[in-house]
Nucleic acid binder design. Structure first.
Lengths: 141, 141
DNA sequence: GCCCTTATTGATATTGAGTATCAATATACT
DNA sequence: AGTATATTGATACTCAATATCAATAAGGGC
């Protein structure tokens, strides 16, 4: 099974782009993170491994990782974050409006009906974004 | 039946905020628009009715309209837009990744399952965001 | 209507995320 | 190794959105 590094290398080759130490470091650190990572967090962590990597390169590389299908960008609460996408079970998000707690879920029927809606309108579904905003147990007390 | 002006007035009173000519103009022009309106468009149109209204006030008022449940903000393709929310049938969006064409749809079962997911996790659902990104008929040719 | 407290406004400065620029450097292919 | 070209880091820049602030206006009490 191909891992993320192989995928990214293949992606780069296909686009006639290059596999560089910076891209390797950024991917490595990104994969070590859990959940939703803000870009400045990522930059700090990468910086501590290799303090020569600039923020612009982190932005550029995250965009490439998104194009390669390895990362997904979210903007729930003003702050943009990135999340792993490959070899991770697909899920949507349930977010507490009060405390920002995030729960991941997936619902096969919702997915199925999304497909249906697309077909009915002559669209080919590529990806989707579904976020439920509510108040969690704790915050209702 | 209360219209948007009454709703907004009540909302403001409740929060001890004031009903001003500017807020009235902005709401009026906003309600005259169709679909998804970018803030600069809105500002231009408002400006032609009352050229003293500044952009900052438009931003401020749109935020209030959102809090009052009269407007909804979207960010599909980089550009932020606002859409009417009250006395308008609830719907989600299907967006073409190629040409940005937007189709509105609603699916009662999806809504129902969203409720279920929330209950299962002890959340009270307040609102949601569901966007399907795909390629439309035209763009597949 | 008049007063007074306090919200609001417009103009503009500021912020901050993300992007463009560019000369120096590194990559990958021959 | 040599060469064409992609990449990098530093930094300038852009642009949407927000903060600041003095002047003004709401609106409740009288």
């Amino acid at each position: 099974m191909l891992d993320e590094f192989d995928i990214f290398k293949d992606f780069l080759k296909q686009k006639e782009l290059r596999w560089t130490p910076q891209r390797k470091s950024i991917l490595k650190v990104f994969l070590e993170q859990e959940g939703h990572v803000p870009i400045d967090d990522l930059h700090k962590k990468i910086h501590s491994e290799d303090h020569t990597i600039g923020i612009a390169t982190v932005y550029r590389t995250m965009k490439l990782l998104m194009d390669a299908g390895l990362a997904e960008m979210h903007t729930f609460n003003e702050k943009t974050t990135y999340e792993r996408l490959y070899q991770v079970r697909h899920h949507d998000h349930l977010i507490c409006k009060a405390c920002s707690k995030t729960v991941e879920f997936e619902h096969p029927l919702i997915e199925k009906y999304q497909e249906e809606v697309c077909e009915r309108h002559g669209f080919t579904l590529k990806n989707h974004r579904m976020e439920l905003f509510g108040i969690c147990n704790e915050c209702q007390k």
